[in-house]
Simulated scan of single mutants.
Amino acid sequence: MDLEFLQSMDIQILVGVAVAALAIVVGAVYLFASTKSKGCLDPENFKEFKLVKRQQLSHNVAKFTFELPTPTSALGLPIGQHISCRGKDSQGEEVIKPYTPTTLDSDVGYFELVIKMYPQGRMSHHFRELRVGDYLAVKGPKGRFRYQPGEVRAFGMIAGGSGITPMFQVARAILENPKDTTNVHLIYANVTYEDILLKEELDSLAAKYPGRFKVYYVLNQPPEVWDGGVGFVSKEMIQTHCPAPAPDIRVCFEVWPSTHEQGHDWTP
């Protein structure tokens, strides 16, 4: 064999190795992407997720952080969808309620629920008893709402109490997407100042995206010093703080459950 032939063989071997390595890398990326895009939820069967952190936000509101199977796992919840959570009430009977995480699929490795617990709420009892290390049974995704980035020019959102969680999820997804230029106008109503959920997070979004996100708080029993709305959400408030009706405008509101316990869907 002459030197030229050996060099040719060496080049062919190197090219073959490079192609094989590239195929392995591409396959791994595809497998990772497929696994990540699939998510951890099952729409037909309940799966259990471990509670790793519980943070009390007020006397009847807590933030629950649940661990996903791996640090790179995504829950697999489309924007505007919710999950069904299963637990037991004070009588030991099974209860299932829908909830919307405040996290997105970009928050890998975990998901969070902000829960307002009512004295007579059946699922509220389950969350009151939930401790770090316990597991929560979850099924999903569920819901009629679908959102595609850029499908409208602006969103008007009207929420009350714990109904803020689906609104917050969608607002975050819109604002944090650099390719989405949709504006968001939120009217958020509560009884007292202490009842306002996710206020720090909402104010942070308003400060970070001043030209695209506006939030107007309404209280039925406001403190002495208050510059927001007072009473119930009125026609005048909606006209002032929501975008005017147009083909490229969508206004959404939260639907209260009959028991007044958190567990909702929301409707455009």
Rank of each mutant, 00 (worst) to 15 (best):
L3A: 13
L6T: 07
Q12A: 12
Q12I: 13
I13Y: 03
V15D: 01
V19N: 06
A20R: 04
V26E: 12
G27D: 07
S34Q: 13
S37Y: 05
K38R: 15
N45T: 13
F46Q: 02
K47T: 13
K47D: 02
K47H: 08
F49D: 09
K50Y: 02
K50E: 15
V52A: 10
A62W: 04
A62Q: 02
F64V: 02
F64E: 07
F64D: 04
T65K: 12
F66V: 06
E67H: 06
L68F: 01
L68E: 10
L68I: 03
G76F: 06
L77T: 09
P78H: 04
G80N: 05
G80H: 08
H82K: 13
S84V: 06
C85Q: 00
K88E: 13
Q91W: 04
G92S: 11
G92K: 11
E93N: 14
E93V: 02
E94M: 12
K97H: 10
P98R: 03
P98K: 08
P98L: 08
T100C: 12
T100Y: 08
T100S: 14
T102R: 03
L104K: 09
D107M: 00
D107S: 11
V108P: 02
L113F: 10
V114K: 01
V114Y: 02
V114N: 03
K116A: 08
P119V: 10
R122Y: 03
H125A: 10
H125P: 08
H126I: 11
F127M: 15
R128T: 14
E129D: 04
R131I: 14
V132N: 00
V132C: 08
G133C: 07
D134T: 14
V138P: 08
K139E: 10
K139S: 15
G140F: 05
K142L: 14
F145R: 07
F145H: 11
Y147F: 14
P149A: 01
G150A: 09
A154F: 00
G156P: 09
M157Q: 12
M157E: 04
I158G: 06
G160E: 03
G160W: 06
G163W: 03
I164R: 03
F168R: 10
F168C: 04
A171V: 09
R172H: 05
I174F: 02
I174C: 06
P178T: 12
P178R: 11
P178M: 01
P178E: 03
K179P: 00
V184S: 08
Y188G: 11
N190A: 07
Y193G: 01
Y193E: 13
K199W: 07
K199L: 11
K199I: 14
L202N: 07
L202V: 14
D203M: 10
D203K: 01
S204H: 06
K208M: 07
P210F: 00
P210L: 02
G211L: 05
G211C: 00
V215Y: 00
Y217G: 13
V218K: 08
L219M: 14
N220E: 15
V225E: 12
V225H: 08
W226N: 08
G231H: 09
F232I: 14
V233D: 05
K235C: 02
M237D: 10
M237S: 02
I238S: 05
I238Y: 00
Q239A: 15
Q239K: 14
Q239S: 13
T240I: 04
T240H: 01
H241P: 07
C242P: 04
P243L: 07
P247A: 09
P247I: 11
D248A: 08
V251E: 04
C252Y: 03
F253V: 12
V255W: 00
W256V: 13
